[in-house]
Amino acid sequence: MRRFLTQHASAFGDAVRKLFASPLGTILSLIVIGTALALPAASGIILDNLRDLAGGAPKAQQISLFMASSADRRAFDEIELRLRMAHVGNWRFVPRDEALERLKAIEGVPEILASLPKNPLPDAFIVEPEDVRPEMVENLAKTFSSWPEVEHVQLDSEWVRRLDVFLRIGRLMILMLASLFGGALIIVTFNTIRLQILAQADEIEIARLIGATNAFVRRPFQYFGFLQGLLGGLFAAALILLGAGLLSSTLDELVALYGGRWAPHGLDFALVGRLTGIGALLGWLGAQLSVAVHLKKGA
């Protein structure tokens, strides 16, 4: 056990020494790895916050059921009954006269209305569904339109649905970007370690000849990949936090213009943890691959 720990400590020490042995190379690698991790992570954070800025919208989602002009009291009762049975959420009845009154409150409209011979508005039910997932709202609207004396069903916030699709496309693109850059990170580590193995061919051969196991030979490289990825992750987190800091005052103004408040989330300790974790994992993976390809198994 003691020896096991000593071996790991010494491999770890070797890895740290390698990081410092060629500072320029290490810095270049960290920039590449940091950028590769920061770009997709930053895009993800921006997307998440965009969705939240649009966040109030889904709750305001409404479905309007416009009744046929032939509908009478009995038809309204029927719809009310069905709405009550369906447990869809909040709803209220807006008689055509009430709708007209509200319309009149808007400037310039009374003049237009005055020229009309009679109230052109239909009676309506306004439903605020409990479940605001776009596909559920869509389904509800479809159901409503099949009910008797319902002439037209209108989704008041289709733009939310469009935004949702847009966000999903965005997320997919970020996922592709992340895979691409994750691959780049693995390749960078793979190549760095290939060069190290070449440079240390003598030492590796000699160590094997006098009793080094495969694990002993591989361990420093694995630690190196792990450490370099971890530092790259830290660098990425620093880049993102710095960028957010620089942008925040400008964004404050912009968001204030739309009556919102800039309270970004995703810029926290969990981000640092995630980036270092992913960096370390991918670095270790690159090292593992490089070692498997470039280090022949002993004797």
Binding site: R2, L5, I206, A207, G211
Partner: peptide, 11 residues
């Protein structure tokens, strides 16, 4: 020191 590093002897 190399052979002792290989067997993991404390420094």
């Amino acid at each position: 020191l190399l052979p002792m590093k290989i067997v993991g002897l404390p420094a």
